[in-house]
């Protein structure tokens, strides 16, 4: 990425504004996950409603940013790195919106779990641990996007297998619970869905990181093994 600015200051400003809005949306989505997980652990009804209500804002960002991308395409006909940036942003906001949906889903399930009177959930720290990994991945993906840092994006891709491992381990633990005490089946199943939502968040963070690599390198690394990606990135 060069340091040279566009001749058109307005174009530069439009791109910057769009980039900034993506990061704002990312910040909101990250807060949504944290709040949803918090609500899942505590059953705080106010927090649950807040997460559900805030999803509207996430959706609003998606529509607004996509609209801005359309404007950039039609007004500026961007090429090369600018084109890749606009295309990637349009995909990134879809992933962010989906993450928002997952957070909302977690909040809704928290509501179900706590209203159902289940109380083993707060004793389930593995979900919190998984969520921490997911949030870290998202944060790093957004950070890589902000700084156009390929190495950082590559680390996110690597992290995705860790979250998949966590998910399998959570699943095993929950199966054990259910076998030991069938009364926990209903709540445990809800917890499986929460774990699945967290795992999906990791997938979306990975998608965002892949888009960062596309912006910087111009290489589409989707559906490519990590070893192949590393090989590709080591080429200069």
């Amino acid at each position: 990425m060069g340091v040279t600015e566009h001749i058109s200051k307005a174009f530069e400003a439009d791109l910057d504004a769009t980039r900034t809005r993506v990061l704002q949306m990312g910040g909101l989505v990250e807060a949504q996950i944290l709040a949803a997980i918090q609500a899942y652990a505590s059953g705080d009804a106010v927090l649950i409603e807040q997460v559900i209500a805030n999803d509207e804002r996430v959706n609003g960002y998606e529509v607004a940013i996509d609209g801005a991308c359309g404007q950039l395409l039609v007004r500026r006909q961007p090429a090369a790195t600018d084109l890749r940036l606009v295309m990637a942003i349009s995909k990134i906001v879809t992933d962010l919106e989906r993450i928002g949906d997952e957070a909302e889903k977690i909040a809704r399930m928290a509501k179900g779990i706590h209203e159902g009177g289940a109380h083993h959930a707060q004793r389930f720290p593995a979900i919190r641990h998984m969520a921490q990994i997911a949030v870290k991945m998202l944060r790093q993906a957004l950070d890589a996007f902000a700084r156009l840092d390929v190495a950082s994006a590559a680390e996110v891709l690597k992290e995705d297998s860790a979250i998949d491992d966590e998910f399998r381990s959570v699943l095993r633990q929950l199966i054990t619970y259910m076998m030991e005490d069938p009364r926990t089946i209903s709540a445990s199943l809800e917890t499986v869905w929460v774990a699945k939502a967290v795992e999906r968040i990791g997938d979306h963070a990975k998608n965002i990181a892949e888009q960062v690599i596309y912006i910087v390198k111009g290489t589409d690394v989707r559906h490519t093994s990590f070893a192949d990606i590393e090989r590709e990135l080591s080429k200069e």
């Binding site: 060069g2 566009h6 058109s8 090429a79 090369a80 084109l83 890749r84 111009g218």
Partner: peptide
């Protein structure tokens, strides 16, 4: 989409 040269990149992106 992916010019190899920085000068080309600068020119086509304005």
């Amino acid at each position: 989409i992916k010019p190899k040269n920085k000068q080309t990149e600068d020119y086509i992106t304005g």
